[in-house]
Design a protein around this nucleic acid. Structure first.
Length: 374
DNA sequence: CGGAATGATTACAA
DNA sequence: TTGTAATCATTCCG
């Protein structure tokens, strides 16, 4: 600030105007309009300014401010300024909202990084996780907590950095505004100009902010891809879970579409999520339909199983929506085939009606090994 | 290691 | 929204 102030004071004083000249705006104009003014001389004066002490500069400034001709000189400066400013203005007044930054903003918002207050951090992260998947749910949580924690970390860094930027920006803006106001006593500075300067500063800072946003986005993307990979790193359901699902499937072969409640029940029983149950049934239906022969043995196995279970439990007629509810004590192999045929026949999708394939016995399915996750 | 099995994802239709 | 069909990516197993 001091250097600039001194500079200004010095510059205002140069130009080699004699006191007589200063009084008359026209003569000032004449002087300024003469480019033959010795540049070397000006330079020398500028150099001299840097050698001035602060007090000296203050004194000169004060002397200048108190000079009786100052108002006249000032008005001329204003006039000239007006012209140049006019030519500057209009060139860069418009700045449409940067689509790039809008995009980044939207993404950060979608990821829950910038969005609503910190209090809803986990909720935002959960929303982000759901949005990240784009799929129904996968809401099962433990591996998500890691993701959430990382996202919260990113979020925190982002916000603290943003705060720092904002603070720095306002500090700098204040500083500049003060400086300009101070200077406006010695040189013509309109409020509009100050405004413009502030806008320029803000633009500069927002470009820095964009970098922050960009790198935050990148961090989120990396985190997300890693998370997505982790999600793709599937684990097979354990044997018991597969058994429960298969039991339900084969005992409802004629309509293997568990209701929402049934899915929830199955999910609880198998310690998996509802969407995993949905996925399982989706996969099962399509794979069963594609190659009924291959699944025949499995179908028979579960038909027997349910029959045995039912027999051992005797007649538990009223089981609300429990899976594997046998219709009666004896569920024969032929029934399984019938159910398959019924499923194939009844289902509205484009069946090719190859019900007879039911009788083909194909290599059996190996029951998968149970693996604990978490 | 290669192929089968399998859970998840995606595009699409009703 | 839900289900289907195709496909991807990983795991399992001989």
């Amino acid at each position: 600030m001091d250097d600039q102030t001194r500079m200004l004071a010095g510059l205002a004083g140069l130009g080699g105007l004699s006191q007589g000249d200063v009084g008359d705006p026209d003569s000032v104009r004449k002087q300024l309009g003469q480019p033959q003014q010795d540049i070397g001389d000006i330079l020398q004066q500028i150099m001299a300014i840097t050698d001035e002490s602060l007090d000296e500069a203050q004194a000169r400034k004060h002397a200048l401010n108190c000079h009786r001709m100052k108002p006249a000189l000032f008005s001329v400066l204003c006039e000239i300024k007006e012209k140049t400013v006019l030519s500057i203005r209009g060139i860069q007044d418009e700045d449409p909202p940067d689509p790039q930054i809008m995009r980044l903003d939207n993404m950060l918002l979608a990821e829950g990084v910038s969005g609503p207050e910190k209090g809803g951090g986990s909720a935002a992260a959960a929303a982000a996780a759901a949005a990240a998947g784009g799929s129904p749910g996968a809401d099962g949580g433990v591996e998500h907590s890691d993701y959430r924690a990382k996202l919260a970390q990113i979020r925190q860094i982002y916000h603290s950095e943003l705060e720092k930027y904002e603070q720095a920006c306002s500090e700098f803006t204040n500083h500049v505004m003060n400086l300009l106001r101070e200077q406006s006593r010695t040189r013509p500075i309109s409020p509009k100009e100050i405004e413009r300067m502030v806008a320029i500063i803000h633009r500069k800072f927002s470009s820095i902010q964009m970098q922050l946003k960009q790198s935050t986005c990148e961090a989120v993307m990396i985190l997300r891809s890693r998370f997505l990979d982790a999600r793709r790193k599937r684990r097979n359901f354990n044997k018991q879970a597969t058994e429960v699902l298969n039991e339900y499937f084969y005992s409802h072969l004629s309509n293997p579409y568990p209701s929402e409640e049934a899915k929830e029940e199955l999910a609880k029983k198998c310690a998996i999520t509802v969407s995993q149950v949905s996925n399982w049934f989706g996969n099962k239906r399509i794979r069963y339909k594609k190659n009924i022969g291959k699944f025949q043995e499995e179908a028979n196995l579960y038909a027997v199983k349910t029959a045995v279970d039912a027999a051992s439990v005797s007649a538990q007629a009223s089981q609300a929506n429990s899976p594997a509810t046998p219709n009666s004590g004896s569920y024969s192999l032929s029934h399984a085939g019938d159910a398959a045929a019924a499923y194939l026949g009844l289902h509205p999708s484009n069946l090719n009606g190859d019900g007879e394939a039911v009788l083909n016995i194909a290599p059996s399915l190996q029951p998968q090994v149970g693996t604990e996750d978490l």
